[in-house]
Amino acid sequence: MILPEPYRLIAYLVGALAFVGLNAAYLVWLERKVAARFQRRPGPTEVGPAGLLQPIADGLKLLGKQFVVWPHADRVLFRLAPAFVLAPALMCLAVIPFGHALCARDFNLGLLLVFAFGSVNVLAILLGGWASRNKYSVIAAARVVSQNVAYEIPMLLVVTTLLLTAGTMNLRELVQQQAGGVWNWNLVKVWVNPLMPVLFLIFYVCMLAETNRAPFDMAEAESELVAGAFTEYAGMGFGLFFMAEYANIVVGASVATVLFLGGWHSPVGVMPGTFWFLVKLYALVFSVMWVRWTFPRTQFYRLLNLSWKLLIPAGLGALLFTALILKLR
């Protein structure tokens, strides 16, 4: 069923906002629960059964707080930054196919759109950090920019390599190419390109870095920079940054699912496609949390070294190798 135009837009807006909001709320809950289990604690238990009402309590608390703009901050940019950080994630959701027919916009250059809007996120954190006029925020902003610039390159190299074999930027078509069982997922299509698992690994590391997640959480770096770029934000301003962090993780995990894990295709053939898409998506989100609670934060220069000395050469090598095998085939 294809919805006519204005209804489609409204359905997308409502759906995307609800999806992002619920995700932000319940991924915070999940993160706290998962962190607790990794440290053998019970996690939140007091508000509602198993702490399930905790996000609502947190949300109410954040809403009840004043949004303080301190006198020396850049008033306009300071207020704009939280909106800028959330909007691109919402935009990206427009082209992600959650199921065979569940996609807000079947767009030819979907992948390009995701990466174009994905990098606005950096700009928003830079704006927030800069506008705060606080040394911690400025340091964090500078770090975020150099980190994201460094990791955007290998990520795009990997995606370009994948596109060499896929030949389309339409996310729906990308998923359709992976139909027909687990062995057709891009992750394990080694007969098309023997480097597929390596590409996934590079993509995953870059995704962690792009979404500013531990062990690459240089933007927040609580133990070094108070709260980094978010230091001066109170109330829902901080809340929006938090929502955006989880929205970006969801977008990153969705793109990884679409590109490598076969999108909505089921490995066993039962249950609807959207269910499998969400299973893969949340499995990836869980792995992101798993990584966070396993590895300590890296040093900043090591982070850059990893990208410039390892991931970019590896990505370039993979691109050349793939071009070569495509040429010789």
Partner: peptide, 27 residues
Amino acid sequence: FCLGLHSLATGLAVTLEQFFRRPVTVH
């Protein structure tokens, strides 16, 4: 590089093992 990858995997295995154990907190 291989040693580093191996140690990363070992770390993940260690934390996952803890994940499936009972919490030790006395509430």
